[in-house]
Design a protein around this nucleic acid. Structure first.
Lengths: 108, 108
DNA sequence: GTCTTAGTTCGATATGTTTCGAACAAAGGC
DNA sequence: GCCTTTGTTCGAAACATATCGAACTAAGAC
């Protein structure tokens, strides 16, 4: 079962706004590096409700799809869909080193 | 004379945040299409102080440089600097059609 | 059926952002 | 010198966002 709020609009403005938050940027980058993850696996010490909010923004922007798998929700990056609408955008955001680790780097 | 707040940090997070606002995204896209412009040439009916604020955010993000030329301030996109740090990012943001015209399209 | 787990939704608070008008500063034209 | 033009800076108001805890829901384990 997929969670997707209607057809995501895939508006550039909405996508950039979603990516403009450090927590969400961290989520997207981590999802890109490590593939699907549960919500809990990405909370950098933030509360469940905060994370739920950020995932909702990412979902509504069309950047992330959430697949409900039993009790956990697996989130995946919508690489191809975003790539189709805005070629090169995700690659540029993902394939570059970045200072500061918004979501802890699991390098602990 | 160039206006540049110290060395712009060129942080991805800051750049995405700057681009996440529809007015600023419009400015950047228009600057990309039409080259340098004065501040006044890009106000979509907004007040001077509002535009000044947006240009400041763009400048601080390292997306725009402002050259003072007599009484007017000419703003140009820092394509190469941004491209050097985040290859493909500006291209992805600029070279795509976008719904909604934040800054009026001069197609009036 | 009861309990646990993983997320969501709600309501509140604190913080940021956008926007404006008014006052200011710099550069030139007269 | 004075006036005009173009932006900037300063408050202030309106709005949006990030964050939390508490109450809720759905799925499964027991």
């Amino acid at each position: 079962m997929l969670k997707q709020e209607a057809a995501p609009s895939l508006r550039l403005e909405t996508i950039l706004h979603a990516l403009g938050d450090p927590v969400r940027l961290g989520i997207v980058r981590q999802l890109a590096r490590e593939g699907e993850s549960s919500c809990a696996a990405l909370n950098g010490g933030r509360s469940k409700s905060t994370m739920s909010h950020h995932f909702r923004v990412l979902r509504e922007a069309g950047l992330v799809v959430t697949r409900v798998q039993g009790v956990t929700h697996m989130n995946g990056l919508c690489r191809s869909a975003v790539e189709a609408s805005f070629p090169g955008l995700l690659a540029a955001v993902i394939d570059c080193p970045v200072a500061g680790a918004p979501v802890e780097n699991s390098a602990a």
